[in-house]
Design a protein around this nucleic acid. Structure first.
Lengths: 155, 155
DNA sequence: TATTGTTATACTCTATAACTATA
DNA sequence: TATAGTTATAGAGTATAACAATA
């Protein structure tokens, strides 16, 4: 062993890029845009967030996120709430309906994934299952999963 | 053992959903839309494709794909070529410039992934490396990687 | 004066419908 | 008559710039 990772990052980028395409193709229905669904998932993962914070996380501008949140609010999937300390700030909260919508989408994806997994050898399913915790830590490092409420939420 | 998969599909859907968000956040520069980059990757993976086929694979309409291909052609990343047998059909080909652009993006992602991987324990990197072939078969089953030229390409 | 968020405007991308060319 | 692709038009989503409110 020379201490280096046995993992070729280029191959990993290509492989995870295909996972990206896969999840994209499994993402149905298409009534909400990918950015919109991703924002809902971020709100679920990190809890209430400010508009500026959401915009940065999703890689869109602040005005675009203002409109996106307005859309979510109009459809009852999220809502703005005032914040005690600073009256310039609003905290965007996921509603129960938003959480349910997200769960419904994920269930649909899980169903389609199950169909794909059924076609793989058991050893492949085991390898994927074994890697899931590691993948969670990888994504958590980048997407910022708050271990403590103080680090990630707004208030 | 009861013969069932040890893999909870809902957890897998959530985990791969985070991988989706991760790749989305690593996808820079943003000068091309996600659909555009995804189309380039599809052309690389499957070889020359017809417009109708690309539209179905990317989940957009035929007219939208016509415009997307026109954009790619204008920027020199892909090109239309007539097909011998049926003069209604065009085959969309990835150009060398398109292939290079894709490689450049993937190299950028790989670099950022390397930074994230460095923060993980070696056992995590090993688990991810061990799962990559299985993930490739999972995505290949859905995205259609042609093993034989005849099955996936257009001509 | 800096920061948070919104409003105004223009541009890009997409969908639906109508059309052309070939089979 | 059916199929592959394009063109026409309208709507959704985004960015940049200008603005309002609060700190």
């Amino acid at each position: 062993m020379d201490g280096r990772s046995p993992l070729d990052e280029l191959e990993l980028a290509a492989g995870l890029g295909r996972v990206y395409s896969l999840m994209r193709s499994l993402s149905l229905p298409r009534d909400l845009s990918m950015t919109t669904v991703s924002t809902l998932a971020t709100l679920e993962r990190r809890g209430p967030c400010r508009v500026t914070e959401l915009a940065a996380l999703e890689g869109v501008t602040q005005p675009a996120m203002t409109q996106l949140v307005s859309r979510l609010e109009r459809e009852g999937l999220a809502e703005r709430r005032a914040l005690a300390g600073d009256r310039r700030v609003v905290a965007v909260h996921l509603t129960d309906a938003g959480r349910a919508d997200l769960a419904r989408r994920r269930a649909g994806q899980a169903e389609r994934l199950a169909g794909l997994l059924a076609g793989l050898p058991a050893s492949d399913r085991e390898a994927i299952a074994a890697a899931l915790p590691a993948l969670d830590r990888l994504t958590g490092a980048a997407l910022g999963v708050p271990d403590t409420p103080a680090s990630g939420e707004c208030e």
